[in-house]
Design a protein around this nucleic acid. Structure first.
Lengths: 231, 231
DNA sequence: TTCATAGTTCGATGATAGCCGAAGCATCGA
DNA sequence: TCGATGCTTCGGCTATCATCGAACTATGAA
Protein backbone atom coordinates (compact mmCIF):
# COMPACT_ATOMS: atom_id res chain seq x y z
CA UNK A 1 0.00 0.00 0.00
CA UNK A 2 2.33 2.69 1.26
CA UNK A 3 5.26 1.24 -0.70
CA UNK A 4 5.21 4.20 -3.01
CA UNK A 5 8.55 5.46 -4.19
CA UNK A 6 10.11 3.30 -6.86
CA UNK A 7 9.39 3.62 -10.57
CA UNK A 8 7.68 6.96 -10.15
CA UNK A 9 10.90 8.38 -8.78
CA UNK A 10 12.77 7.43 -11.89
CA UNK A 11 10.02 8.85 -14.06
CA UNK A 12 9.99 12.05 -12.04
CA UNK A 13 13.66 12.49 -12.80
CA UNK A 14 12.85 12.49 -16.50
CA UNK A 15 9.78 14.56 -15.81
CA UNK A 16 11.62 17.78 -15.14
CA UNK A 17 12.20 19.77 -18.36
CA UNK A 18 15.77 20.69 -17.53
CA UNK A 19 16.81 17.16 -16.70
CA UNK A 20 14.95 15.87 -19.70
CA UNK A 21 16.87 18.18 -21.98
CA UNK A 22 20.10 16.86 -20.55
CA UNK A 23 19.06 13.28 -21.08
CA UNK A 24 17.93 13.80 -24.64
CA UNK A 25 21.23 15.56 -25.32
CA UNK A 26 22.97 12.42 -24.09
CA UNK A 27 20.70 10.28 -26.23
CA UNK A 28 23.06 10.65 -29.15
CA UNK A 29 25.52 8.46 -27.28
CA UNK A 30 28.08 11.21 -26.81
CA UNK A 31 29.26 11.94 -23.31
CA UNK A 32 28.99 15.62 -22.35
CA UNK A 33 30.48 17.75 -19.61
CA UNK A 34 28.44 19.28 -16.82
CA UNK A 35 28.77 22.76 -18.33
CA UNK A 36 27.68 21.59 -21.74
CA UNK A 37 24.68 19.91 -20.24
CA UNK A 38 23.85 23.06 -18.30
CA UNK A 39 23.92 25.07 -21.50
CA UNK A 40 21.91 22.41 -23.28
CA UNK A 41 19.24 22.66 -20.60
CA UNK A 42 19.36 26.44 -20.45
CA UNK A 43 20.12 26.64 -16.74
CA UNK A 44 22.99 27.83 -14.57
CA UNK A 45 25.81 25.45 -13.60
CA UNK A 46 24.66 25.37 -9.97
CA UNK A 47 21.23 24.13 -10.91
CA UNK A 48 22.70 21.70 -13.37
CA UNK A 49 24.98 20.27 -10.72
CA UNK A 50 22.00 19.55 -8.52
CA UNK A 51 20.16 17.86 -11.37
CA UNK A 52 23.15 15.80 -12.38
CA UNK A 53 23.67 14.36 -8.93
CA UNK A 54 20.01 13.41 -8.81
CA UNK A 55 20.20 11.71 -12.17
CA UNK A 56 23.31 9.89 -11.07
CA UNK A 57 21.70 8.78 -7.81
CA UNK A 58 18.78 7.49 -9.85
CA UNK A 59 21.11 5.40 -11.96
CA UNK A 60 20.24 7.12 -15.22
CA UNK A 61 23.66 8.60 -15.94
CA UNK A 62 27.20 7.86 -14.84
CA UNK A 63 30.16 10.24 -14.61
CA UNK A 64 33.68 9.88 -15.86
CA UNK A 65 36.17 12.26 -14.39
CA UNK A 66 38.56 13.78 -16.85
CA UNK A 67 40.91 16.37 -15.41
CA UNK A 68 38.77 19.22 -14.27
CA UNK A 69 35.92 18.09 -16.49
CA UNK A 70 33.22 15.66 -15.60
CA UNK A 71 31.78 13.77 -18.51
CA UNK A 72 28.35 12.24 -18.16
CA UNK A 73 26.81 9.50 -20.24
CA UNK A 74 23.71 7.33 -20.06
CA UNK A 75 24.26 4.24 -17.94
CA UNK A 76 23.00 1.85 -20.55
CA UNK A 77 20.91 1.14 -23.61
CA UNK A 78 17.86 0.44 -21.46
CA UNK A 79 17.80 4.09 -20.43
CA UNK A 80 17.98 5.14 -24.05
CA UNK A 81 15.17 2.71 -24.86
CA UNK A 82 12.90 4.25 -22.26
CA UNK A 83 13.64 7.76 -23.50
CA UNK A 84 12.91 6.78 -27.06
CA UNK A 85 9.74 5.05 -25.97
CA UNK A 86 8.66 8.26 -24.26
CA UNK A 87 9.44 10.18 -27.41
CA UNK A 88 7.15 7.89 -29.33
CA UNK A 89 4.29 8.43 -26.92
CA UNK A 90 4.88 12.18 -26.83
CA UNK A 91 4.89 12.33 -30.61
CA UNK A 92 1.60 10.47 -30.70
CA UNK A 93 0.04 12.76 -28.12
CA UNK A 94 1.19 16.13 -29.37
CA UNK A 95 4.11 18.12 -30.56
CA UNK A 96 7.25 16.61 -31.98
CA UNK A 97 10.69 17.91 -31.31
CA UNK A 98 13.76 17.99 -33.47
CA UNK A 99 17.13 17.64 -31.88
CA UNK A 100 19.91 19.97 -32.87
CA UNK A 101 22.35 18.38 -35.26
CA UNK A 102 26.05 17.82 -34.71
CA UNK A 103 28.27 20.86 -34.38
CA UNK A 104 31.58 22.13 -35.68
CA UNK A 105 32.96 19.45 -38.04
CA UNK A 106 36.51 20.81 -37.79
CA UNK A 107 36.80 20.09 -34.08
CA UNK A 108 35.33 16.67 -34.49
CA UNK A 109 37.94 15.60 -37.00
CA UNK A 110 41.14 16.18 -35.00
CA UNK A 111 42.00 18.32 -32.02
CA UNK A 112 44.25 18.56 -28.99
CA UNK A 113 43.02 17.10 -25.73
CA UNK A 114 45.56 18.61 -23.31
CA UNK A 115 48.66 17.14 -24.99
CA UNK A 116 47.38 14.24 -27.08
CA UNK A 117 45.28 13.62 -30.17
CA UNK A 118 41.51 13.56 -29.93
CA UNK A 119 38.58 13.58 -32.33
CA UNK A 120 37.72 11.10 -35.07
CA UNK A 121 41.39 10.46 -35.81
CA UNK A 122 42.28 9.98 -32.16
CA UNK A 123 39.52 7.44 -31.65
CA UNK A 124 40.48 5.71 -34.88
CA UNK A 125 44.08 5.48 -33.75
CA UNK A 126 43.27 3.78 -30.46
CA UNK A 127 40.85 1.41 -32.15
CA UNK A 128 43.44 0.43 -34.69
CA UNK A 129 46.12 -0.05 -32.06
CA UNK A 130 43.84 -2.39 -30.15
CA UNK A 131 42.90 -4.47 -33.16
CA UNK A 132 46.56 -4.64 -34.22
CA UNK A 133 47.29 -5.88 -30.69
CA UNK A 134 49.76 -3.09 -30.06
CA UNK A 135 47.87 -2.30 -26.87
CA UNK A 136 46.30 -4.69 -24.44
CA UNK A 137 43.44 -3.56 -22.27
CA UNK A 138 42.81 -5.43 -19.04
CA UNK A 139 40.16 -4.18 -16.66
CA UNK A 140 41.02 -0.56 -15.94
CA UNK A 141 44.64 -0.56 -17.07
CA UNK A 142 46.07 -0.44 -20.57
CA UNK A 143 49.60 -1.32 -21.59
CA UNK A 144 51.83 -1.67 -24.63
CA UNK A 145 52.41 -5.23 -25.85
CA UNK A 146 55.82 -6.47 -27.03
CA UNK A 147 54.50 -6.08 -30.54
CA UNK A 148 53.45 -2.55 -29.65
CA UNK A 149 56.89 -1.61 -28.36
CA UNK A 150 58.51 -2.83 -31.58
CA UNK A 151 55.94 -0.93 -33.63
CA UNK A 152 56.61 2.33 -31.77
CA UNK A 153 60.36 2.01 -32.19
CA UNK A 154 60.25 1.19 -35.89
CA UNK A 155 57.39 3.31 -37.17
CA UNK A 156 57.67 6.37 -34.93
CA UNK A 157 61.08 6.18 -33.29
CA UNK A 158 59.55 6.14 -29.83
CA UNK A 159 61.39 4.03 -27.24
CA UNK A 160 58.95 2.60 -24.75
CA UNK A 161 61.46 2.78 -21.91
CA UNK A 162 61.58 6.57 -22.07
CA UNK A 163 57.87 6.85 -21.46
CA UNK A 164 57.79 5.78 -17.83
CA UNK A 165 56.73 8.53 -15.46
CA UNK A 166 56.26 8.49 -11.67
CA UNK A 167 52.81 10.02 -11.58
CA UNK A 168 51.40 9.43 -15.04
CA UNK A 169 50.51 6.17 -16.78
CA UNK A 170 52.01 5.32 -20.14
CA UNK A 171 48.71 4.36 -21.67
CA UNK A 172 45.37 5.79 -20.59
CA UNK A 173 41.92 5.75 -22.11
CA UNK A 174 40.54 9.25 -22.42
CA UNK A 175 36.91 9.85 -23.15
CA UNK A 176 36.46 11.68 -26.41
CA UNK A 177 34.42 14.86 -26.52
CA UNK A 178 32.82 14.42 -29.93
CA UNK A 179 32.67 10.64 -29.97
CA UNK A 180 31.30 8.44 -27.24
CA UNK A 181 34.42 6.26 -27.37
CA UNK A 182 37.93 6.62 -26.01
CA UNK A 183 41.17 7.83 -27.49
CA UNK A 184 44.72 7.38 -26.22
CA UNK A 185 46.15 9.58 -23.47
CA UNK A 186 49.07 9.04 -21.10
CA UNK A 187 52.75 9.63 -21.83
CA UNK A 188 52.46 7.47 -24.93
CA UNK A 189 49.59 9.50 -26.29
CA UNK A 190 51.54 12.68 -25.64
CA UNK A 191 54.72 11.29 -27.19
CA UNK A 192 52.89 10.21 -30.32
CA UNK A 193 51.31 13.63 -30.74
CA UNK A 194 54.73 15.23 -30.28
CA UNK A 195 56.17 12.94 -32.94
CA UNK A 196 53.35 13.75 -35.38
CA UNK A 197 54.21 17.43 -34.93
CA UNK A 198 57.96 16.89 -35.33
CA UNK A 199 57.42 14.86 -38.48
CA UNK A 200 55.26 17.73 -39.79
CA UNK A 201 52.36 15.33 -40.21
CA UNK A 202 50.17 17.66 -38.17
CA UNK A 203 50.22 21.10 -36.53
CA UNK A 204 48.02 22.90 -34.06
CA UNK A 205 45.85 25.57 -35.60
CA UNK A 206 47.39 29.05 -35.47
CA UNK A 207 44.27 30.68 -34.07
CA UNK A 208 44.83 31.48 -30.37
CA UNK A 209 42.84 29.20 -28.11
CA UNK A 210 41.88 26.88 -30.93
CA UNK A 211 42.16 23.20 -30.19
CA UNK A 212 41.94 22.20 -33.84
CA UNK A 213 44.77 20.07 -35.26
CA UNK A 214 45.43 20.31 -38.99
CA UNK A 215 46.96 17.33 -40.77
CA UNK A 216 49.04 17.83 -43.90
CA UNK A 217 48.20 15.80 -47.00
CA UNK A 218 51.31 13.73 -46.57
CA UNK A 219 50.79 13.42 -42.83
CA UNK A 220 47.25 12.15 -43.25
CA UNK A 221 48.50 9.58 -45.76
CA UNK A 222 51.23 8.30 -43.44
CA UNK A 223 48.81 8.27 -40.50
CA UNK A 224 46.31 6.27 -42.54
CA UNK A 225 49.01 3.78 -43.53
CA UNK A 226 49.61 3.04 -39.86
CA UNK A 227 46.13 3.27 -38.39
CA UNK A 228 43.64 3.41 -41.26
CA UNK A 229 41.02 6.11 -41.77
CA UNK A 230 37.86 6.75 -39.75
CA UNK A 231 34.55 5.21 -40.82
CA UNK B 1 16.21 26.12 -27.42
CA UNK B 2 13.05 27.15 -25.63
CA UNK B 3 11.06 24.28 -27.17
CA UNK B 4 10.93 22.54 -23.85
CA UNK B 5 7.84 20.69 -22.89
CA UNK B 6 7.25 17.47 -24.76
CA UNK B 7 8.72 14.18 -23.59
CA UNK B 8 9.27 15.55 -20.11
CA UNK B 9 5.57 16.19 -19.82
CA UNK B 10 4.81 12.56 -20.48
CA UNK B 11 7.47 11.47 -18.02
CA UNK B 12 6.12 13.89 -15.42
CA UNK B 13 2.76 12.18 -15.72
CA UNK B 14 4.36 8.91 -14.72
CA UNK B 15 6.48 10.73 -12.18
CA UNK B 16 3.71 11.36 -9.70
CA UNK B 17 3.36 8.45 -7.25
CA UNK B 18 -0.42 8.39 -7.37
CA UNK B 19 -0.58 8.34 -11.17
CA UNK B 20 2.21 5.82 -11.29
CA UNK B 21 0.29 3.46 -9.03
CA UNK B 22 -2.67 3.73 -11.35
CA UNK B 23 -0.58 2.97 -14.39
CA UNK B 24 1.13 -0.03 -12.85
CA UNK B 25 -2.27 -1.32 -11.79
CA UNK B 26 -3.30 -1.10 -15.43
CA UNK B 27 -0.11 -2.83 -16.48
CA UNK B 28 -1.76 -6.20 -16.03
CA UNK B 29 -3.87 -5.45 -19.08
CA UNK B 30 -7.10 -5.28 -17.17
CA UNK B 31 -9.23 -2.19 -17.52
CA UNK B 32 -10.22 -0.64 -14.20
CA UNK B 33 -12.84 1.88 -13.12
CA UNK B 34 -11.99 5.32 -11.82
CA UNK B 35 -12.94 4.31 -8.27
CA UNK B 36 -10.81 1.21 -8.36
CA UNK B 37 -7.88 3.22 -9.59
CA UNK B 38 -8.44 5.77 -6.84
CA UNK B 39 -8.33 3.02 -4.24
CA UNK B 40 -5.29 1.50 -5.88
CA UNK B 41 -3.50 4.83 -5.62
CA UNK B 42 -4.73 5.52 -2.13
CA UNK B 43 -6.38 8.84 -2.92
CA UNK B 44 -9.90 10.24 -2.98
CA UNK B 45 -12.05 9.98 -6.11
CA UNK B 46 -11.80 13.74 -6.70
CA UNK B 47 -8.06 13.65 -6.85
CA UNK B 48 -8.12 10.52 -8.94
CA UNK B 49 -10.45 12.17 -11.42
CA UNK B 50 -7.98 15.00 -11.89
CA UNK B 51 -5.13 12.57 -12.42
CA UNK B 52 -7.08 10.45 -14.85
CA UNK B 53 -7.98 13.36 -17.07
CA UNK B 54 -4.32 14.35 -17.18
CA UNK B 55 -3.26 10.85 -18.09
CA UNK B 56 -5.92 10.76 -20.77
CA UNK B 57 -4.84 14.14 -22.17
CA UNK B 58 -1.30 12.81 -22.28
CA UNK B 59 -2.40 9.84 -24.32
CA UNK B 60 -1.33 7.25 -21.78
CA UNK B 61 -4.76 5.85 -21.00
CA UNK B 62 -8.10 5.80 -22.77
CA UNK B 63 -11.56 5.58 -21.26
CA UNK B 64 -14.46 3.37 -22.13
CA UNK B 65 -17.79 4.42 -20.76
CA UNK B 66 -19.89 1.64 -19.36
CA UNK B 67 -23.12 2.79 -17.79
CA UNK B 68 -22.18 4.88 -14.83
CA UNK B 69 -18.70 3.39 -14.72
CA UNK B 70 -15.70 4.64 -16.58
CA UNK B 71 -13.18 1.98 -17.42
CA UNK B 72 -9.63 3.01 -18.17
CA UNK B 73 -6.96 1.04 -19.95
CA UNK B 74 -3.50 1.75 -21.31
CA UNK B 75 -3.64 3.13 -24.83
CA UNK B 76 -1.19 0.66 -26.25
CA UNK B 77 1.67 -1.75 -25.78
CA UNK B 78 4.22 1.02 -26.19
CA UNK B 79 3.02 2.57 -22.94
CA UNK B 80 3.39 -0.77 -21.20
CA UNK B 81 6.87 -1.10 -22.68
CA UNK B 82 7.97 2.22 -21.24
CA UNK B 83 6.57 1.36 -17.82
CA UNK B 84 8.35 -1.97 -17.81
CA UNK B 85 11.54 -0.31 -18.93
CA UNK B 86 11.27 2.10 -16.04
CA UNK B 87 10.71 -0.82 -13.70
CA UNK B 88 13.93 -2.34 -14.93
CA UNK B 89 15.89 0.83 -14.28
CA UNK B 90 14.27 1.30 -10.90
CA UNK B 91 15.08 -2.27 -9.93
CA UNK B 92 18.68 -1.71 -10.90
CA UNK B 93 18.90 1.50 -8.90
CA UNK B 94 17.13 0.47 -5.73
CA UNK B 95 14.14 -1.29 -4.31
CA UNK B 96 11.98 -3.68 -6.25
CA UNK B 97 8.26 -3.82 -5.96
CA UNK B 98 5.85 -6.72 -6.14
CA UNK B 99 2.44 -6.17 -7.58
CA UNK B 100 -0.62 -7.39 -5.76
CA UNK B 101 -2.05 -10.55 -7.25
CA UNK B 102 -5.50 -11.04 -8.73
CA UNK B 103 -8.48 -10.85 -6.42
CA UNK B 104 -11.66 -12.82 -5.69
CA UNK B 105 -11.62 -15.85 -8.01
CA UNK B 106 -15.35 -16.44 -7.68
CA UNK B 107 -16.27 -13.12 -9.29
CA UNK B 108 -13.79 -13.62 -12.06
CA UNK B 109 -15.29 -16.91 -13.13
CA UNK B 110 -18.87 -15.85 -13.86
CA UNK B 111 -21.01 -12.94 -12.76
CA UNK B 112 -23.86 -10.70 -13.79
CA UNK B 113 -23.04 -7.50 -15.61
CA UNK B 114 -26.39 -5.67 -15.38
CA UNK B 115 -28.40 -8.39 -17.15
CA UNK B 116 -25.89 -10.45 -19.07
CA UNK B 117 -23.02 -12.85 -18.42
CA UNK B 118 -19.57 -11.57 -17.58
CA UNK B 119 -16.32 -12.98 -16.28
CA UNK B 120 -14.15 -15.70 -17.74
CA UNK B 121 -17.15 -17.56 -19.10
CA UNK B 122 -18.68 -14.42 -20.62
CA UNK B 123 -15.48 -13.56 -22.41
CA UNK B 124 -15.08 -17.15 -23.54
CA UNK B 125 -18.61 -17.14 -24.93
CA UNK B 126 -18.11 -14.07 -27.08
CA UNK B 127 -14.74 -15.33 -28.29
CA UNK B 128 -16.25 -18.63 -29.29
CA UNK B 129 -19.21 -17.01 -31.03
CA UNK B 130 -16.83 -14.90 -33.08
CA UNK B 131 -14.61 -17.79 -34.10
CA UNK B 132 -17.70 -19.89 -34.95
CA UNK B 133 -18.80 -16.96 -37.11
CA UNK B 134 -22.09 -16.64 -35.26
CA UNK B 135 -21.34 -12.96 -34.78
CA UNK B 136 -19.76 -10.58 -37.21
CA UNK B 137 -17.95 -7.53 -35.92
CA UNK B 138 -17.58 -4.60 -38.29
CA UNK B 139 -16.03 -1.37 -37.02
CA UNK B 140 -18.09 -0.37 -33.99
CA UNK B 141 -21.17 -2.48 -34.60
CA UNK B 142 -21.71 -6.21 -34.07
CA UNK B 143 -24.47 -8.33 -35.53
CA UNK B 144 -25.70 -11.91 -35.71
CA UNK B 145 -24.87 -13.78 -38.90
CA UNK B 146 -27.37 -16.08 -40.63
CA UNK B 147 -25.47 -18.95 -39.13
CA UNK B 148 -25.77 -17.25 -35.76
CA UNK B 149 -29.54 -16.90 -36.05
CA UNK B 150 -29.89 -20.60 -36.86
CA UNK B 151 -27.64 -21.49 -33.93
CA UNK B 152 -29.68 -19.42 -31.49
CA UNK B 153 -32.95 -20.99 -32.64
CA UNK B 154 -31.71 -24.56 -32.52
CA UNK B 155 -29.43 -24.59 -29.50
CA UNK B 156 -31.12 -22.08 -27.22
CA UNK B 157 -34.62 -21.54 -28.66
CA UNK B 158 -33.99 -17.84 -29.10
CA UNK B 159 -35.65 -16.24 -32.13
CA UNK B 160 -33.54 -13.40 -33.45
CA UNK B 161 -36.62 -11.43 -34.58
CA UNK B 162 -37.82 -11.04 -31.01
CA UNK B 163 -34.61 -9.35 -29.93
CA UNK B 164 -35.08 -6.06 -31.77
CA UNK B 165 -35.47 -3.07 -29.48
CA UNK B 166 -35.94 0.64 -30.30
CA UNK B 167 -33.19 1.96 -28.02
CA UNK B 168 -30.91 -1.00 -27.40
CA UNK B 169 -28.73 -2.89 -29.84
CA UNK B 170 -29.07 -6.65 -30.25
CA UNK B 171 -25.35 -7.25 -29.95
CA UNK B 172 -22.96 -5.06 -28.01
CA UNK B 173 -19.41 -5.51 -26.83
CA UNK B 174 -19.13 -4.84 -23.13
CA UNK B 175 -15.79 -4.40 -21.44
CA UNK B 176 -15.17 -7.10 -18.87
CA UNK B 177 -14.23 -6.13 -15.35
CA UNK B 178 -11.83 -8.96 -14.60
CA UNK B 179 -10.52 -9.54 -18.10
CA UNK B 180 -9.21 -6.93 -20.46
CA UNK B 181 -11.43 -8.23 -23.24
CA UNK B 182 -15.10 -7.90 -24.09
CA UNK B 183 -18.12 -10.05 -23.41
CA UNK B 184 -21.55 -9.94 -25.05
CA UNK B 185 -24.15 -7.41 -23.97
CA UNK B 186 -27.24 -6.10 -25.77
CA UNK B 187 -30.65 -7.77 -25.98
CA UNK B 188 -29.01 -10.95 -27.22
CA UNK B 189 -26.65 -11.09 -24.26
CA UNK B 190 -29.58 -10.55 -21.91
CA UNK B 191 -31.73 -13.16 -23.66
CA UNK B 192 -28.96 -15.73 -23.48
CA UNK B 193 -28.47 -15.14 -19.76
CA UNK B 194 -32.22 -15.47 -19.25
CA UNK B 195 -32.21 -18.75 -21.12
CA UNK B 196 -29.30 -20.10 -19.10
CA UNK B 197 -31.31 -19.37 -15.97
CA UNK B 198 -34.51 -20.92 -17.34
CA UNK B 199 -32.65 -24.05 -18.37
CA UNK B 200 -31.18 -24.20 -14.83
CA UNK B 201 -27.71 -24.13 -16.25
CA UNK B 202 -26.89 -21.21 -13.98
CA UNK B 203 -28.39 -19.13 -11.15
CA UNK B 204 -27.49 -15.89 -9.47
CA UNK B 205 -25.94 -16.30 -6.06
CA UNK B 206 -28.47 -16.09 -3.22
CA UNK B 207 -26.39 -13.59 -1.23
CA UNK B 208 -28.08 -10.17 -1.49
CA UNK B 209 -26.06 -7.80 -3.64
CA UNK B 210 -23.79 -10.52 -4.93
CA UNK B 211 -23.09 -10.50 -8.61
CA UNK B 212 -21.72 -14.04 -8.67
CA UNK B 213 -23.34 -16.51 -11.06
CA UNK B 214 -23.15 -20.21 -10.12
CA UNK B 215 -23.21 -22.77 -12.89
CA UNK B 216 -24.54 -26.27 -12.21
CA UNK B 217 -22.40 -29.22 -13.20
CA UNK B 218 -24.75 -30.06 -16.02
CA UNK B 219 -25.05 -26.44 -17.04
CA UNK B 220 -21.32 -25.99 -17.25
CA UNK B 221 -21.09 -29.12 -19.40
CA UNK B 222 -23.78 -27.92 -21.81
CA UNK B 223 -22.25 -24.46 -21.94
CA UNK B 224 -18.82 -25.95 -22.71
CA UNK B 225 -20.34 -28.07 -25.48
CA UNK B 226 -21.55 -24.90 -27.20
CA UNK B 227 -18.73 -22.46 -26.43
CA UNK B 228 -15.82 -24.46 -25.00
CA UNK B 229 -14.10 -23.75 -21.70
CA UNK B 230 -11.83 -20.83 -20.77
CA UNK B 231 -8.08 -21.20 -21.08
C1' DT C 1 53.00 30.41 -6.66
C1' DT C 2 49.18 32.69 -8.76
C1' DC C 3 45.34 33.03 -11.73
C1' DA C 4 41.52 31.00 -14.40
C1' DT C 5 38.20 27.56 -15.16
C1' DA C 6 35.06 23.49 -13.94
C1' DG C 7 32.25 22.04 -10.66
C1' DT C 8 29.93 21.84 -6.06
C1' DT C 9 27.45 23.30 -1.73
C1' DC C 10 24.39 26.35 0.83
C1' DG C 11 20.43 29.29 1.66
C1' DA C 12 16.49 31.98 0.29
C1' DT C 13 12.78 32.59 -2.93
C1' DG C 14 8.93 31.60 -5.69
C1' DA C 15 5.87 28.88 -8.51
C1' DT C 16 3.91 24.65 -9.56
C1' DA C 17 0.85 21.06 -8.46
C1' DG C 18 -1.07 17.49 -5.43
C1' DC C 19 -4.62 17.09 -2.12
C1' DC C 20 -9.27 17.14 -0.10
C1' DG C 21 -14.15 19.20 1.20
C1' DA C 22 -18.23 20.64 -0.88
C1' DA C 23 -21.22 20.78 -4.51
C1' DG C 24 -22.82 19.50 -9.23
C1' DC C 25 -23.98 15.94 -13.28
C1' DA C 26 -25.08 11.51 -15.05
C1' DT C 27 -26.71 6.96 -14.84
C1' DC C 28 -28.95 2.98 -12.72
C1' DG C 29 -32.66 0.75 -9.90
C1' DA C 30 -37.29 0.87 -7.85
C1' DT D 1 -40.33 10.26 -9.96
C1' DC D 2 -37.07 9.63 -6.36
C1' DG D 3 -32.90 8.12 -4.08
C1' DA D 4 -28.23 5.88 -4.59
C1' DT D 5 -23.92 5.50 -6.77
C1' DG D 6 -19.96 6.75 -9.86
C1' DC D 7 -17.61 10.47 -11.35
C1' DT D 8 -16.43 15.38 -12.17
C1' DT D 9 -15.70 20.42 -11.18
C1' DC D 10 -14.45 24.19 -8.11
C1' DG D 11 -11.83 26.61 -4.46
C1' DG D 12 -8.47 26.97 -1.10
C1' DC D 13 -4.55 25.03 1.46
C1' DT D 14 0.01 23.25 1.68
C1' DA D 15 4.37 21.15 0.53
C1' DT D 16 7.60 20.11 -2.65
C1' DC D 17 11.18 21.43 -5.66
C1' DA D 18 13.43 24.02 -9.33
C1' DT D 19 16.02 28.18 -9.57
C1' DC D 20 19.78 31.36 -8.81
C1' DG D 21 23.35 34.42 -6.04
C1' DA D 22 27.24 33.83 -3.28
C1' DA D 23 30.87 31.35 -1.52
C1' DC D 24 33.93 27.18 -1.62
C1' DT D 25 36.95 23.20 -3.67
C1' DA D 26 39.79 21.11 -7.23
C1' DT D 27 42.31 20.89 -11.33
C1' DG D 28 45.11 22.89 -15.13
C1' DA D 29 48.00 26.75 -17.13
C1' DA D 30 51.47 30.41 -16.87
Amino acid sequence: MKSGPDISRIAALVGDPARCNMLTALLTGRALTASELAQEAGITPQTASSHLSKLEAGGLIEPEKQGRHRYYRLTGPDVADVLEGLQGIAARAGHMRVRTGPKDPALRRARICYDHLAGDLGVQMLDSMKSQKLIRQSKQAMELTGEGKRFMAEALQIEADTLEHPRRPVCKACLDWSERRHHLAGTLGAAMMDRFTELKWAARDATPGSRVVNFSRNGEKRFAALFGVPE
